[in-house]
């Protein structure tokens, strides 16, 4: 179940590399976030840890509803559908994304499985299996971890590849998704305050990004990063 969710997240991330319009991308992100939230919920059912439920709810609230809603509103202010622009083109980006996924998958899966198996280097290295509740509950940790790292990688690639401000912001969100996924896979047990803080932060980031992109459209009439190369040297 978790593995399937993870692969779905990966697929939706790949889609981000392929979409044609910005508002479509926002919808895809919203979908990814729902998947993430669902994952947390599944974990909650398996482990009965209260934190996970809150995480699921927060993810749903913030990432699936609030952020996309805000971004869509920003996009609506422009009044016309905006196209995504990439350095490598749509197919090229998709190919590179697939390539990254394959390479990253190979690298990370061996690493992640070793990680999950037990002591690697010396006595003080933790073995996830017997230290965390999560570790005990999960069979598919290594898949989750692999996917998380791939998503991180794809997010980074997205930010480099895309030439529209908003897509870069979505890349950032994707990276954060990856981090959250990883945290989940490793046994998400951060203190409640911290978790809350992180979510709050994400929220503010997106708001700031949205504000900036809105201002940018007003000031520059575009969200293309090509227009933003005045500050040099």
């Amino acid at each position: 179940m978790l593995d399937i969710l993870a692969w779905l997240i990966w697929l939706s991330t790949l889609m981000l590399l392929f979409v044609r319009y910005l508002h479509q991308a926002v919808w895809v992100v919203a979908g990814t976030s729902i998947l993430l939230s669902a994952m947390s919920f599944v974990l909650f059912i398996e482990t009965r840890e209260g934190g996970l439920l809150i995480a699921a709810l927060l993810t749903l609230l913030v990432k699936a509803f609030f952020v996309p809603g805000y971004l869509l509103r920003t996009l609506q202010k422009v009044g016309r559908p905006l196209e995504t622009v990439r350095y490598l083109g749509r197919m090229g980006s998709l190919l590179v994304g697939l390539l990254l996924s394959v390479i990253g998958g190979r690298l990370f899966s061996t690493w992640a499985s070793r990680l999950a198996l037990g002591p690697l280097n010396g006595p003080s290295t933790p073995s996830l299996e017997h230290t965390t509740a999560m570790g005990r509950a999960l069979g598919g940790t290594d898949v989750l971890m692999t996917v998380a790292l791939i998503v991180l990688l794809l997010g980074a690639f997205m930010m480099i590849d895309h030439r529209k401000v908003l897509m870069q912001a979505l890349g950032l969100v994707t990276m954060e998704n990856g981090v959250v996924l990883l945290a989940t896979s490793l046994g998400y047990q951060m203190p409640f305050f911290v978790e809350l803080g992180i979510f709050f932060d994400l929220l503010v980031t997106i708001v700031v990004v949205g504000m900036l992109s809105y201002q940018m459209i007003e000031a520059l009439g575009s969200m293309a990063t090509d227009r933003m190369q005045r500050l040099k040297g």
Binding site: A156, I160, T225, Q229, R230, G233
Partner: peptide
């Protein structure tokens, strides 16, 4: 060397990563 600071944020991110 100054050309590295090209104003292109994608490039900056690429260097960072």
């Amino acid at each position: 060397i100054r050309r590295i600071q090209s104003g292109n944020v994608q490039m900056y991110l690429a260097i960072l990563f």
